[in-house]
Each structure stands twice: as C-alpha cells, then as structure tokens.
Computed example of a mutant assay.
Amino acid sequence: MTLKTLVLILNTDRPVKELASKLRGYIAIRFKQYPILHHHIEEAGYLYTYPRIQYKQIEGTPLVLGIEEGADILKKISDEIAELKLGKSVYKVKSIQMTQMNAEFGPCRENNHYKFVTPWLALNPANYERYKWISDWREKKEFLNGILAGNILSMCKGLDYVVDRKLYVHSRLDDEKVEYKGVPLIGFTGEFRVNFRIPEFFGLGKGVSQGFGVVKAY
C-alpha cells in the first residue's frame, strides 16, 4: 500500500521552544475553516482514529505531517503561514520546505530499523500498573514490544488497512519523564526493528497529533 504524505518543515528565525501542542493550537485557530487541522470530529462529521494531520517539534524545528486528504489541506494553507504565534512567543517563518511523496506502508519480509525522535507514550493507566510491577527486564521488554506491535496495528486500523501477518518487534528503549496535557507520564525513546514499513515522521502511541512517538528510519 502507498499513502500520499506531505511533510511541511517551517524554518523559523530562531529555534522554537514551545511544544507541538502550541503549534497545533495556532494552526487550528488560524485555519479554523478546515476541521481536519484540529481533529474536531463533531464538526467534521467523520471519525479519524489515526490523525491525518500531525504536529511535531523536533530539536527546535516545527513540522507538520499531512496524510492523504491531510496532505491536500496542508498544501492549500502552506503559502499563508508567515509567522507562528505560540503562547507568548512570535516566530517569523523564513522559509518552508515541502516534501510530498507516495510512501510505502505495510508489512514486509525484512526487518526495518527505526528510532523514536520524540518520546513514545506507550502506557495507559491500566498497562502502566502492569509495567510497574514487572521486575525482570526481559519481561518488561517483551511487554513493551507487544504494546508497540499493537500501536502499529491501531495505526493500520485508523488508516483502513488490514494487516495479514504477524508483526515481530525487537526494541532497545529507555524511559524518561514527560508531560502530556499537564499530566506527568513515562515516555520511551530509543530504537526498534519491525517487519513493517512506517513512513517518515509518522507517530505511534498516545498524543500522535501533538508530536509524541515520532518515528524515523534509523
């Protein structure tokens, strides 16, 4: 399967300090005529369980990913983004780098190598309790590998794609404290291998639309 994707990299006059949630808020209000930009399902009349627009902030650079119809909307609005008002900060957009492609998506024979460039929010309240009580590191690793495979399958379901084979995940992850919607959580960074093609900058886990769990080929 191929997916139409568009990556919009916004080169600003200085590094952006604010989180991707601020970028999401600004773009959504600035272009409120497009409900897909803020994922307000009630207004749009459809349900996307996997966001077609995803906002990222990677090492001070703001980035927006559009998938399928999301890519078309991003292309429409790109010329109108001259500045970013993020909280109390205003950034001038000096240039915009736009990359559109038909990205390969789906299971494959070989193991592909990826890394999380932003923390992956793997744990909900229920599986956090389970994770906390696992003392053996191998068992913890297998537990996280299972969640990661599940996140990939959830992404597929949200993109109306049926996976017809088992996914095998191998990971090397480190945990770190993060904050999501004002709540302290555990996030994970590191690398993993899986027999699946994931396009650049796609997100996995919780908080995908706000820049968590961003994946890049390693």
Rank of each mutant, 00 (worst) to 15 (best):
W120R: 00
L121C: 09
K140Q: 10
I67S: 02
K115M: 14
A103G: 02
H113W: 12
I77K: 00
I152M: 09
G87Q: 05
W133R: 15
Q54T: 08
I147C: 10
G70P: 05
Y55E: 04
E69V: 12
Y131Q: 07
S95V: 09
G70R: 02
Y131H: 11
N145Q: 15
S89A: 13
N111E: 06
H40E: 07
K140H: 03
N111F: 10
I81E: 00
I147G: 05
K76V: 11
P119S: 14
Q97S: 15
G87T: 08
T61Y: 03
G150K: 00
S95T: 14
G70V: 05
Q33P: 05
N127D: 13
H39Y: 12
Y48V: 01
E69Q: 09
Y128N: 07
R138C: 10
S154T: 12
Q100A: 15
P119T: 08
G70N: 03
R109P: 02
P51L: 12
R52H: 13
L74T: 02
Y48T: 03
Q54M: 13
N111W: 00
W133C: 14
L47T: 08
K76Q: 11
H38Y: 15
E42L: 15
K92W: 02
E129G: 02
A28T: 13
G106V: 05
S154V: 08
E139L: 12
P51M: 10
A149Q: 03
A103P: 01
L47D: 00
P35A: 13
I53C: 06
P125H: 06
A149N: 01
G150I: 05
R130M: 15
H113D: 11
L37V: 07
N145H: 06
G87L: 13
H38F: 15
I96N: 01
P107M: 10
Q33R: 12
Q57Y: 06
I81R: 02
K141R: 13
E68K: 07
Y46I: 14
N145C: 14
G70C: 08
T99H: 13
A82S: 13
R52A: 09
F31L: 10
A122C: 06
L63I: 15
I147E: 03
K32R: 11
P119V: 11
N127Q: 07
V90Q: 04
Y55L: 09
K75I: 12
Q33W: 05
V93N: 05
E139M: 10
Y34W: 14
